[in-house]
């Protein structure tokens, strides 16, 4: 919960992104501090999901995407020529809005990232460790090879996805509205989990649930119409917003 300034792991420098002719992200400057939780909030269509998907170059899949400016990961521009997006994604994992486990066993879901990345150690232990980290181990330890990802409940599926992302030991975990498809109990579990995770990994989370941002995050960025309106320590953004638009949003006047 500390609000000291740690060196940024990820930072954007005048980063813009276009879908065809539509500019979805407009010259955003944002620093994401190591082992802290940064929340990106804003109304639907403000570009927050686009921005977070730019952090591990998942937008590359969408035809017609163009970028300008830079995103630096530990000082290296990930959009520079010659940078392999696959290598970027090995360090920057992601959890999606809707749980998307592989249609394979629980074990294989977690082991897949390890296998393709040429993991040399004990696969079983590493999978178990990731499931423990994602607070799922106790619920699935007897069914690792019997149940598929689809057999789990929605909340369990999302924690499985978190375990899958954690297994390859990313430095940053991006979460794109990870609780929006879950019920309140499952949401509470995931939120607790996110707080625990921040001890070992940097987390950037997109949410349109302001209470969630306030509960979970150390830093909050407020975006509107593609622009970064305000960025600061969560407590300050929620208690003393500098921008009137931020205030209007968090007090529920629009969004």
């Amino acid at each position: 919960m500390s609000e000291h300034v740690a060196p940024p792991v990820l930072s954007t420098r005048k980063f813009s992104l276009w879908y065809g002719s539509h500019q979805a992200v407009i010259e955003v400057d944002l620093d994401i501090a190591e082992r802290q939780i940064t929340a990106i909030i804003g109304p639907s269509g403000c570009g927050k999901s686009t921005l977070i998907r730019a952090f591990n170059r998942l937008n590359d899949l969408i035809p017609g995407v163009r970028t300008a400016g830079e995103i630096l990961f530990r000082g290296e521009g990930i959009y520079r020529r010659g940078v392999d997006p696959v290598a970027v994604r090995r360090h920057i994992g992601m959890v999606f809005q809707k749980p998307n486990p592989f249609p394979k066993t629980v074990f294989e879901n977690v082991a897949f990232g390890l296998r393709i990345n040429g993991f040399q150690g004990n696969l079983k232990d590493r999978v178990a460790q990731a499931l423990v980290q994602a607070a799922l181990w106790d619920e699935v330890k007897n069914d690792l090879h019997r149940k598929t990802g689809y057999d789990l409940s929605g909340g369990q599926q999302q924690r499985l996805c978190i375990a899958r992302a954690l297994a390859v030991e990313p430095e940053v975990l991006l979460m794109d509205e990870p609780c929006s498809a879950l019920d309140p109990i499952a949401t509470a579990k995931i939120e607790d989990l996110i707080r625990d995770l921040a001890r070992s990994v940097t987390v950037a989370i997109v949410t349109h649930n302001m209470q969630q941002a306030a509960r979970v995050s150390d830093w909050t960025a407020f975006m509107l119409l593609g622009e970064l309106v305000e960025f600061g320590p969560t407590r300050e953004v929620f208690t003393r917003p500098k921008d009137s638009r931020t205030e209007a949003y968090i007090t529920g006047r629009f969004g």
């Binding site: 591990n56 998942l58 899949l61 696959v86 290598a87 994604r89 090995r90 994992g93 992601m94 999606f96 809707k98 998307n100 486990p101 592989f102 249609p103 897949f112 990232g113 393709i116 990345n117 996805c161 899958r164 992302a165 297994a167 390859v168």
Partner: peptide, 18 residues
Amino acid sequence: VPQTLREAALAVGATRWE
């Protein structure tokens, strides 16, 4: 094939072919 499945694999560092 749902796009989310492709994203899930890519997000753990899989190449397109993988």
